[in-house]
């Protein structure tokens, strides 16, 4: 019969050789199982005196606990090592490409419309739309355009009949809005327009405009300036300055064109602004009383303003696109850059 000391000795020796969970279990059975050495040791106590039992039992249990502790540690180390080995084997090359996720891109024209319309919606404007095909009354006469206005010419505007045309500007929606909506209102009116321009780098027979129109009591030209200055800062950045130059449109008076300080050079002069530091962005003005009178609006009580801007022009300036035809060619390699 071995003594407890040599059993512990043996256990330590054997524990050193254990390298797998199976071997650890084998050793556990050998030492702690029903026929294990510690078990037998304790079983051998039954013939001892009470005093001996007490002493022997304590020592043996102490040794057993010590072994159990050692065995547990060993087991844990084995599990950890196995885990480490597996993780090491599972190492991936993180520089391999991710699985592609393809998100589509909105057309840059749409993006520009959404951006501008969004700015005006934030200011309390509502989207109002009118048809692409409209009457010459809504397009010209109702907008105070004289009989001789060059835009009426068949070389400029597409006609479906004498009284029906493809709108050359979104302003055609102004008279409709006046007749349909209740005062006061603030609307933004995006849409497609058509002009008989042969396609080249800066002309397209199909293009888009955004019209803004406000009618209310006490609306002033100062309001027009303030609203557009706000838009320009939102659209082109907070440093943007605006300049309003007198101009002439039949449907507004006073009329203006608005320039913004060049967003490329900040106004110092560069190729984008052709050295002037300013870029022409839109036409606007206080709605001509004749245009309000078409819908029977009391021009003494109400005043208002209207703005029209070219979407393609804004998109081209913003993104530095030098040929409008790229926008209608629909080459995916072009459109998908505008993400």
């Amino acid at each position: 019969m071995q003594d407890i000391k040599s059993i512990m000795e043996e256990a330590r020796e054997q524990l050193k050789k254990v390298s797998t969970s199976e071997e650890a279990e084998e050793l556990r059975v050998k030492m702690l199982g029903r026929k294990g050495k510690f078990t037998e040791m304790l079983r051998s106590m039954k013939d001892m005196s009470a005093e001996e039992k007490k002493q022997f039992g304590r020592e043996t249990n102490q040794a057993k606990a010590e072994f159990q502790q050692m065995l547990a540690e060993r087991k844990e180390a084995i599990v950890k090592k196995a885990k480490d080995t597996r993780l090491a084997a599972e190492t991936i090359d993180v520089t391999e490409p991710g699985r592609p996720v393809h998100y589509g891109v909105k057309h840059p024209i749409t993006q520009t419309i959404e951006e501008v319309v969004g700015i005006f919606e934030d200011m309390g404007y509502s989207v109002y739309e009118s048809p692409d095909i409209d009457t010459t009354f809504n397009t010209f006469d109702g907008l105070n355009a004289p009989e001789t206005h060059p835009a009426r010419d068949v070389t400029d505007t597409f006609y479906l009949s004498e009284k029906v045309c493809l709108r050359p500007h979104t302003s055609s929606g102004e008279v409709r809005a006046e007749k349909e909506l209740s005062l006061p209102y603030q609307i933004v009116l995006p849409g497609r327009c058509y002009r008989r321009d042969t396609p080249d780098a800066t002309h397209s027979p199909t293009f888009n405009q955004i019209e803004m129109m406000v009618i209310g009591e006490g609306i002033t030209m100062a309001d027009l300036k303030g609203s557009l200055d706000y838009m320009a800062k939102k659209l082109f950045g907070p440093e943007t300055r605006t300049k309003f130059r007198p101009h002439h449109f039949p449907f507004t008076e006073p009329s203006a064109e608005m320039d913004v300080s060049c967003f490329k050079c900040g106004g110092k002069g560069c190729s984008v602004c052709k050295g002037s530091g300013w870029i022409e962005i839109l036409g606007c003005g206080m709605t001509h009383p004749h245009v309000h009178q078409v819908a029977g609006i009391d021009t003494e009580k109400y005043t208002g303003f209207a703005v029209g801007m070219g979407v393609e022009r804004i998109a081209m300036l913003k993104y530095g696109i030098d040929d409008i035809r790229l926008l209608y060619e629909n080459d995916m390699r072009f459109i998908e850059q505008f993400k």
Binding site: V127, E129, I219, K225, D229, K243, F244, M286
Partner: peptide
């Protein structure tokens, strides 16, 4: 109105935002 405005100078006009109580509508 336009003659006075252009001689006064558009640059000299103040900038304000419309005080207007229009009801938004949705399409």
């Amino acid at each position: 109105v336009e003659e006075v405005a252009r001689m006064y100078g558009y640059d000299n006009l103040p900038m304000t935002l419309p005080a207007i109580a229009s009801k938004p509508f949705f399409s």
